[in-house]
């Protein structure tokens, strides 16, 4: 380790090149070792603080297209994602939050940050709802993820009152398309805003649960919560 000028590989015989390459490897390792105290430094607290500053500055600069957070709930962790228009997506753990965020990045915008400020109100209202102290949600919704018939079905769902249920057939009739029972089913299963837009209040005509994007256990738990309150 006498020559550290590191002039490797430029000219010279093949033999010198090999010797140089070995020396280079040694240098690489020695250099990285020398820098190790800086490379290994714990920065977690600083990164958390800087993340907070980035959230604020991005929102102020109009660059935060989607802000999200994950809240705990009796039916598992819920992802809450919002644009500056309103709540865009509620997602169950079983949907895979990373996959949901990847879809939002592709369909809406990749300018996405974990940032709780924008979903403060809905997080609080969900907490009240799960505690049995709230019967409806009062937050702006961004419904851009749904179009056409699915969207009109989902808009109708917010009219089904807390503690009440409708059948898929009744929802189809209410949206002016009584034969579109299956389409109502798929509108419910693709509801981007479950819990807040209560697709869990739609059952089969025989009273059985049908399906649910968060799993039947979650649907059952929500219906039990609402019938107990």
């Amino acid at each position: 380790m006498t020559d550290s000028s590191g002039s490797i590989g430029s000219g010279g015989t093949a033999r010198a090149g090999v010797a140089g390459a070995q020396e280079d490897v040694v240098d690489e390792r020695a250099g990285a070792e020398l820098l190790a105290p800086l490379a290994d430094q714990e920065q977690g607290a600083d990164l958390a603080r800087l993340h907070g500053r980035l959230e604020r500055e991005a929102a102020e600069g109009g660059l935060l297209d989607i802000a999200y957070r994950v809240v705990d709930s009796p039916i598992g962790p819920l992802l809450l994602a919002a644009t500056d228009q309103g709540l865009l997506r509620v997602a169950f753990g079983v949907e895979g939050h990373d996959a949901v965020l990847a879809t939002l990045a592709a369909r809406v915008s990749p300018r996405i940050l974990r940032s709780p400020a924008r979903t403060e109100a809905v997080a609080r209202q969900l907490e009240e709802y799960f505690a049995g102290r709230r019967r409806s949600f009062d937050v702006p919704l961004d419904r851009r993820l749904s179009r056409g018939f699915r969207r009109s079905v989902q808009e109708h769902l917010t009219e089904i009152a807390y503690g009440r249920t409708e059948s898929y057939a009744e929802v189809a009739a209410a949206t002016g398309n009584p034969r579109a029972v299956r389409a109502v089913g798929s509108a419910c299963s693709t509801n981007p805003l479950p819990v807040v837009v209560p697709c869990h209040r739609v059952l089969r005509s025989n009273g059985s649960l049908g399906g649910y994007v968060g799993g039947l256990e979650a649907k059952h738990a929500l219906l039990a919560l609402e019938s107990a309150a």
Binding site: L38, L47, L50, L54, I66, I112, L113
Partner: peptide, 22 residues
């Protein structure tokens, strides 16, 4: 394209090291 949050999570620490050194 990944959500930008992933970019921050994956590279935030390395960029901070670089900024501190430079």
């Amino acid at each position: 394209m990944k959500p930008f949050e992933r970019v921050v999570a994956e590279h935030g620490a390395a960029v901070l090291r670089v900024c501190r050194a430079v």
